[in-house]
Computed example of a mutant assay.
Amino acid sequence: MTAIEIKADEALWRNNMLPEGSVVKWTVADGGFARAGHAIAEVRIEGAVHDIVAPVDGRLKVAVGVNGVIEPGMLLATLVPA
């Protein structure tokens, strides 16, 4: 099965001056099972916290750990569909 890339949506930076953010927490552990439509992570961009939602059911492979610095369009994780 083809893995689906979960990236930091560039729209989250639309009204922000800083070009980076960070991963606050993963609500699904690396290797855990994610459900479509459910939050899998929280990211902070200029003080605002945003949920990252799984687009499909699948097994999560984290690419950026907690407190990791992220930029627009950056790969956060992959999901292998179930």
Rank of each mutant, 00 (worst) to 15 (best):
V53I: 15
D30Y: 08
G31W: 10
M17Q: 13
E20T: 12
V28M: 05
S22Y: 02
A39E: 11
H38Q: 15
R44E: 01
P19M: 09
V43C: 03
A48Y: 13
A34V: 09
L18Y: 12
A41P: 01
V28I: 10
V53E: 12
G31K: 10
I45M: 05
I45R: 02
F33E: 13
A48I: 15
V24F: 06
A48G: 06
A34M: 03
V43F: 03
V49G: 04
I45Y: 02
A36T: 05
D51M: 10
G37Q: 07
P55N: 08
A36H: 08
D51T: 14
D51L: 14
A36C: 06
E46P: 03
L18H: 09
E42G: 01
V56D: 06
M17T: 14
E42I: 06
A39Y: 10
S22C: 01
H38F: 05
P19K: 11
I40Y: 04
V23P: 00
H38R: 15
V49P: 02
V53H: 08
V53D: 10
V28D: 04
I40E: 00
A54E: 00
A29I: 11
A54H: 04
A39P: 11
A54T: 04
P55A: 12
M17N: 09
T27D: 01
V24S: 02
R35I: 02
G47D: 05
S22H: 06
E20W: 08
E42D: 14
R44I: 04
K25R: 14
F33P: 06
E42W: 08
G47H: 11
A29T: 12
T27V: 11
L18T: 11
F33G: 11
V49L: 13
F33L: 12
P19V: 07
D51K: 14
E20V: 09
